[in-house]
Write a protein that binds this DNA or RNA. Structure first.
Lengths: 352, 352
DNA sequence: GATTAGCACTCTCGATGCGAGAGTGCTAAA
DNA sequence: TTTAGCACTCTCGCATCGAGAGTGCTAATC
């Protein structure tokens, strides 16, 4: 692989990504003002084809990159992937607009990504792998009315109101909660269920309730998967035909996308960016799509995913820049949230 | 409008809805084994066309219904719209599968609707027009750690943890909450903000917090709009072409759909079903779509919307049946929730 | 007066053919 | 090693054409 070939490969791929049309030797030479003749380019292209980086759709068409070509491009030929400053400012501005809840930040992130890249974007809210019990408090409000405050590792708090059949004083409640705290700390929802379900009386029932609540929260979070900007992909010329559009919608609306994203995210650390090109042979429906994915959050505590889905012919540098930037912003937010919301609301109040 | 014409119109529309192809006189007579000749049918069809209920796409094609035709069909020619029993059972079964939270019920409803009708489905969670303050409690947990329990009219409960700069005992807190309760009962979030923002000290800050929380909840609920089954619409032959598919996705994914649904829902009481055919001239993007919509919930308290979106050529009887049935189920659920969750969790606990 | 048979006419749709254009591969010369 | 030239290939858009389906009208029939 000579240097010249690298350069040519890079230019061919860039040109194809931009124009969307097979690039032929003649137009190529003219377009970039090269000092080589079309024939030379033809030879080099033939060599690159031999190596597996380019193909033709048919005899008399220009060259287009293969999956392998794109991969080489992303790994070796990508220059600066920093998101251009004006875009950075625009995005930052949108994120500073409003105080939102965590979930809404995630939605904002998807919207922003979809909009700036003009591709489809996906994201999941940050979550711990499986939430673990930290402690609970039982607070007597009335004679039979009790407030259950459940605190999970990582700082999430969930409250439930309970009514007992018979009144119970704060002291007995505290004893009960101490017992539960001692037994359950560090366990997951289902572990708590397994451990306490058989117990008799209030303890067993409380265990059941806590377990169900935790499992429910996990399930609900696991379901949350935001997508936006589907239309952008459908507008690409390669998916112009009706049947293809339908299939694309099917892939992007349905569960395949979730599978692919989750699988691709497996080896991904917080902050790094992963590029999946053309389904990598594992997902047929994804053969013409690429995915630029990043994990954000706080390593070891809670993390979420966000990324961009587009046709293989995607401006990878820009997409990578955008994803990395938004991922960084979201990580900052999660960090801030962790610092600020550990059990307490960050409202500063002074007595009058 | 003679009886015979009504019958013919009905059959033509049913046939077109089923087959998706213009119906011609000859095939029509044979298909239904009528005792009339093709020529007679031709005359009647010409008359129906004169009246505005049918058209042809071109000279030598069969007839297809106009918007007006569909409307007449829905208003006068629809027979039994009860959802067939097997489907009822299947749906009921799915709803009895799991105990879920209200939001998840809504998602289930969309999924079920989309699946049984094989069209796109939409729904919003039930909500009061704007949530109104009922009362709050301030509970001292530690010296500076306070739990704020905010109860809204309709029974929704929201808790927040606060830290004060200086400790404050339960008695002062109770005085404070009594004052707030007296001032704010029945007000909306923004009204509370307007009223208490100017107050000095803790009262003003608390008011601000409560106001923000309520406004936030309303906004978040107002944003929730679930859709599913987009692909079903795209699979219809009338949207086979690429550009049309793209536009359809645009319409269904974007904000237009929300606008249309909200406008169509305006005059809709809980339990009744509204059919909007072809955008009724008000929404151009909706010209080839129809909407079958219902409001569910508890009249005057909280209600949500759910419905089915499909091509104009939609099996209205089936869609209406499905929407009405699911709407009824959801109303029951909301009712149950209201009875069960007024401030307290419906867990029955007995002391050991 | 309503219904029907017959017939000429219209329009779509798919198949076929053709020419322009773009691009390649190969060979021979620089 | 690079370049110019040339024959060859393949796509794409356009026009043509015939089959098929359906209509509208007229005149005959019940």
């Amino acid at each position: 692989m000579t240097l010249r070939r690298q350069a040519i490969l890079g230019l061919v791929i860039r040109s194809y990504i931009e124009k969307g049309q097979p690039v032929g030797s003649k137009a190529f030479v003219e377009g970039y003002g090269l000092e080589l003749s079309a024939a030379t380019i033809r030879n080099e292209m033939a060599a690159l084809e031999e190596m597996g980086y380019l193909t033709h759709p048919h005899t008399s068409a220009g060259r287009i990159p293969t999956e392998q070509g794109y991969r080489y491009f992303v790994e070796h030929l990508l220059g600066d992937t920093e998101l251009p400053l004006p875009e950075q400012l625009k995005i930052r501005h949108q994120f500073h607009q409003a105080r939102l809840e965590l979930d809404q930040w995630v939605r904002l992130a998807v919207a922003v990504l979809a909009h700036t890249t003009r591709k489809a974007a996906v994201a999941t809210p940050p979550r711990a792998r499986e939430s673990k019990f930290k402690h609970l408090e039982l607070i007597s409000l009335h004679d039979t009315l009790v407030l259950l405050v459940l605190v999970l590792q990582g700082g999430t708090v969930k409250q439930e109101m309970l009514t007992l059949d018979q009144p119970m004083d704060q002291e007995s409640l505290s004893r009960l909660s101490n017992q539960l705290n001692a037994e359950c700390v560090g366990l997951t929802g289902s572990q708590i269920g397994a451990r306490l379900a058989a117990r008799s009386g209030l303890l067993g029932q409380l265990g059941e309730l806590v377990s169900q609540t935790m499992i429910n929260m996990d399930a609900r979070e696991a379901n949350a998967f935001y997508r936006e900007g589907l239309v952008h992909i459908l507008s690409e010329p390669e998916f112009a035909e009706g049947e293809q559009v339908r299939q694309m919608v099917q892939t992007l609306e349905g569960p395949t996308l979730v599978d692919v994203v989750m699988a691709a995210a497996e080896p991904l650390d917080v902050g790094s960016v992963q590029v999946l090109i053309g389904g990598e042979g594992r997902w047929r429906e994804f053969a013409e799509l690429s995915l630029v994915l990043s994990r954000y959050g706080v390593e070891g505590r809670a993390s979420g995913l966000l990324g961009v889905v587009g046709p293989i012919r995607m401006p990878y540098d820009y997409a990578i820049g955008a994803v990395r930037y938004v991922s960084q912003l979201m990580s900052d937010l999660v960090n801030e949230w962790y610092v600020g919301h550990q059990l307490e609301n960050r409202v500063r109040m002074s007595r009058s």
